[in-house]
Simulated assay, not measured.
Amino acid sequence: MGMVSEFKEFIARGNVIDLAVGVVIGAAFGKIVTALVDGIVMPAVGHLTGGVDVSDWKYVLSPASVDAAGAEIAEVAIRYGAFIQTLVDFVLIAFVIFLFIKGYNRLKKSAEAEAEAAAPAEPSEDVLLLREIRDSLKRG
């Protein structure tokens, strides 16, 4: 089997297409959650903390200054506010994905239970063995 035909078979399986759709939807969902965090959650947190934008929170190690030649020296700061904002994005995305998967598993479990109830139960190994013995006695 050639490389091209193997690749066609791989793509045609459907799992790759499902994965691609999941990635595209996940990226769009990430943008929605980022917009929620940037536009609603963090401004509310900023309001509670005195009107400061959370992404601007930082710890300044050395402030901006001017050297003897008049050149400006930039400040050195640890910008932890952007990290906190990204962390909130992640937690919200993870929580919503958790809820989605929990709902999906519940639907899948109920569908499996319905299918199990609809299908007749197969006989146990003991019953199959007894039937086999019965059939061999009838022949014999």
Rank of each mutant, 00 (worst) to 15 (best):
M1S: 07
G2A: 13
G2P: 13
G2M: 07
M3G: 07
M3L: 12
M3F: 09
M3Y: 09
S5V: 08
E6G: 15
F7A: 05
F7E: 07
F7G: 05
E9K: 15
A12Y: 09
A12G: 11
A12S: 14
R13S: 12
R13T: 12
G14I: 03
G14L: 04
I17M: 15
I17Y: 15
L19M: 13
A20H: 06
V21A: 14
V21M: 11
G22E: 13
V23E: 15
V24R: 08
I25G: 04
I25F: 10
G26D: 07
G26C: 10
A27E: 11
A28E: 06
G30S: 00
I32P: 00
V33H: 00
V33D: 01
V33L: 02
T34V: 14
V37A: 02
D38W: 04
D38L: 03
G39C: 02
G39K: 07
I40T: 06
V41A: 09
M42C: 05
P43L: 01
G46P: 05
G46I: 08
G46E: 11
H47V: 14
L48A: 10
G50L: 05
G50A: 06
G51C: 03
G51D: 02
V52D: 00
S55A: 11
S55Q: 08
K58F: 05
K58Q: 13
Y59M: 15
V60D: 01
V60H: 02
L61G: 12
L61Q: 13
L61T: 13
P63R: 02
P63A: 04
P63C: 03
A64D: 09
S65I: 06
S65Q: 03
S65E: 05
V66C: 02
V66R: 03
D67M: 01
D67K: 01
A69R: 12
A71Y: 06
E72N: 13
E72L: 08
I73H: 03
I73P: 03
A74H: 08
V76W: 02
V76I: 04
I78G: 02
I78W: 13
G81M: 00
G81D: 00
F83Y: 14
F83Q: 14
Q85V: 15
T86I: 02
V88M: 05
V88I: 15
V88S: 04
D89T: 12
L92N: 07
I93F: 03
I97R: 04
I97Y: 08
F100E: 03
F100S: 06
I101T: 11
I101C: 08
G103Y: 07
L107P: 08
K109N: 01
K109V: 01
S110T: 00
A111S: 03
A111I: 01
A111D: 01
E112V: 06
E112T: 10
E112Q: 09
A113G: 07
A113V: 05
A113Y: 04
E114G: 14
E114N: 13
E116Y: 10
A117D: 12
A118G: 13
A118D: 15
A119T: 10
A119P: 05
A119V: 09
E122R: 13
P123D: 07
S124T: 15
V127C: 06
V127W: 04
L128F: 11
L129T: 14
L129F: 12
L130G: 12
L130S: 07
E132N: 02
E132D: 02
E132P: 00
E132F: 01
I133V: 10
S136P: 03
S136G: 05
L137M: 06
L137C: 06
K138R: 10
R139S: 14
G140T: 14
